[in-house]
Design a protein around this nucleic acid. Structure first.
Lengths: 152, 152
DNA sequence: GTAATTGCAAACGCTTTGCAGCGCC
DNA sequence: GGCGCTGCAAAGCGTTTGCAATTAC
């Protein structure tokens, strides 16, 4: 995610306060997982994060699941469901659309200010929105080219 | 879905043509599954569909998975990923946003013409979109009320 | 007739759970 | 010191796969 140091510090403090406010414990595992989560690509899954953490710490998968769940409650991360296999996580304040290739499964991010404005003004009866996950399914250029070749 | 009879017939013909064009076989299972899929709620999962089919036909789950996949390729159904557990399917031409409660998992549909217009005019470099799945996560009014009570 | 499709059952992969032991408060 | 949290291993659950039997063409 190429996070600035000051953002990283701010998020660590935010997590710390969240943990304190819930009367939970500040374990080294929790902060290690936050730190590595901030090193990931725009979106990542539990397995990618786990394999990265594993290099440096001795932490088990279940703990990664638990902590990432906490980071979502704390509004640092957000959980998206882009495709079949597994949940994808992203930094909460990085808003974008997802272009998802139905052929190869690749995901590309597209930022669009008009889209953000549209959602800012949306209001619903009887529903308090927290965040939006917009997933556009189609075919990426690489697969499109490949399909044309395959037809020859 | 409360489908009109003429729409039902048109979709059956569409599926029939799709099957023929692919040189596949017109099995009774395939048409039974299409028929029952059109009886479901706005969105449904494989298990709901299977349990409904099971009442009337002897069809196995794997066949339901296979056929629903075909119906997606044929552009009659669309596959959405609203939450953890399983894929949700919807009629392809019924466009709406999903309001998903992060507390109870309920899903509500909201139709918005402005949203459709926004997406009509969207264009991407190197990506051919097929459809959009817009998922708004938040808290529904029922859970909101419940939480307030729990705090007392 | 024959190859696609089906039912069945087992396998797969992501996620959750139960539990004994560790370590934060 | 107590109990929340961890690692570990097993279980859970939606989905896919392999295979023999069936059936559409």
């Amino acid at each position: 995610m190429k996070i600035d140091d000051d953002v990283r510090i701010r998020l660590k403090e935010k997590f710390e306060e969240f943990i304190k406010s819930k009367r939970m414990r500040q374990t080294p595992e929790r902060f290690a997982i936050l730190d590595k989560a901030l090193d990931q690509h725009v979106h990542f899954d539990i397995d990618e994060l786990y394999r990265d953490i594993e290099k440096e710490y001795r932490v088990c998968r279940a703990t990664v699941y638990n902590t990432v769940e906490l980071l979502c409650e704390c509004n640092i991360l957000r959980k998206h469901y882009l495709n079949e296999n597994q949940a994808a996580y992203e930094l909460a304040d990085d808003r974008h659309l997802h272009l998802i290739c139905m052929s190869c499964g690749s995901v590309r991010e597209v930022r669009d200010e008009k889209f953000n404005q549209y959602f800012e003004q949306l209001k619903f009866k009887q529903f308090k929105p927290t965040f939006v996950s917009t997933n556009i399914y189609g075919i990426c250029s690489q697969c499109s080219r490949k399909n044309h070749k395959d037809l020859n």
